[in-house]
């Protein structure tokens, strides 16, 4: 706001400020207090305007919050609901990275992807490096934010829209619905392979002895010998680490599995075990999406193939003629 009257006033000798330095200090402090009070009052006023009741009390006492929220105001058009056989759907998904430190540079990772994940089916993502396969999995896992489009995920009875989901919604989704097998195991110091694999079960409420028994069983199946199971995976070979990683991702029977090259760096015998595990998961009705570079694994597990490339031309193909009925 312009303040011409202030300028037009003749300079005053401020009679209210005393000449003694200590008095002047007190005056200044009083002025400061007055300003702060004023700020606080302003804040209180705006708050009162926003909400008739105390907003904090609402939020913390867990009462249903009936205040119109700003984020809820412009509701997007409702997405068509998931079909009964659908576990998740990706609708016109795009992901763009804005790298502020280099320019900013804009990096398009995904553009206009639409696909859907069905119960008991495995969709394989293929394409060269840099096509965005891993980025797509990470978007599905909530690890990357969605730039535009939507991902709908079935979470029990309800459907979660990833673009609207809060951090806690995604944590709940990961606990109940989504399992992700990353490309590399993130090693935690001092934690044994057995504990790493048992953790997803313990986290979901299973007793530690039973969880460890199941973890040991799965690790043995993946040819991680008992003598290694008690050691932290930091000293393991690449293949051994990858098997611990797979065991960790597959031990809990999650309704949706996201697999990022689960068969990479595995020998033939272990690859076979992983293929069996994936097919067992399909058998119990899990929806699976994965990146498989390995042709053998690809043809052994996939029902459909989704081709991706860096030019962002995508296409869905049935991997087996006649059998891939939806």
């Amino acid at each position: 706001m312009p303040s011409p009257p202030k300028k037009s006033l003749p300079p005053r000798p401020a009679p209210h400020l005393s000449q003694a330095p200590e008095n002047r200090l007190i005056e200044a402090i009083n002025l400061e207090i007055l300003c702060r009070e004023n700020m606080r009052l302003q804040k209180f006023k705006t708050q009162a305007l926003e909400s008739p009741a105390n907003p904090l009390a609402w939020a913390i006492a867990g009462a249903p919050d009936v205040r119109p929220s700003l984020s809820e105001a412009p509701r997007p058009a409702p997405m068509p609901a998931l079909a009964p056989s659908e576990m998740a759907r990706v609708v016109n998904l795009s992901k763009t990275f804005i790298l502020h430190l280099s320019g900013p540079a804009i990096l398009k990772a995904l553009e206009g992807i639409s696909l859907s994940l069905e119960r008991g089916k495995c969709l394989a993502l293929t394409g060269p490096s840099g096509a965005g396969k891993s980025s797509l999995l990470r978007c599905l896992h909530g690890n990357y934010l969605i730039s535009s489009g939507e991902i709908l995920v079935r979470d029990g009875e309800k459907t979660v829209a990833m673009s609207q989901a809060s951090a806690r919604d995604i944590l709940a989704l990961r606990l109940g619905t989504l399992s992700y097998v990353s490309q590399f195991l993130r090693v935690i110091p001092r934690v044994s392979a057995l504990d790493v694999v048992a953790e997803p079960l313990i986290e979901r409420g299973m007793g530690a002895p039973e969880a460890k028994r199941q973890a040991s069983e799965l690790l043995s199946r993946l040819h991680v010998p008992k003598r290694l199971q008690g050691l932290p995976p930091a000293t393991f070979s690449g293949g051994e680490r990858q098997r611990v990683n797979i065991a960790m991702g597959l031990i809990w029977p999650s309704p949706i599995l996201l697999l990022d090259e689960p068969t990479a760096s595995l020998d033939a015998a272990n690859k076979k075990v992983v293929i069996d595990l994936i097919n067992e998961a399909k058998g119990r009705g899990a929806a699976i999406i994965g990146v498989f570079h390995d042709r053998e694994a690809l043809s052994a597990v996939s029902d459909d193939v989704y081709k991706m490339n860096p030019k962002k031309e995508y296409g869905l193909k049935r991997s087996r003629e006649g059998t891939g009925e939806v």
Partner: peptide, 8 residues
Amino acid sequence: RDNLTAPP
């Protein structure tokens, strides 16, 4: 949460 498959 009325989702039975999800842990409490």
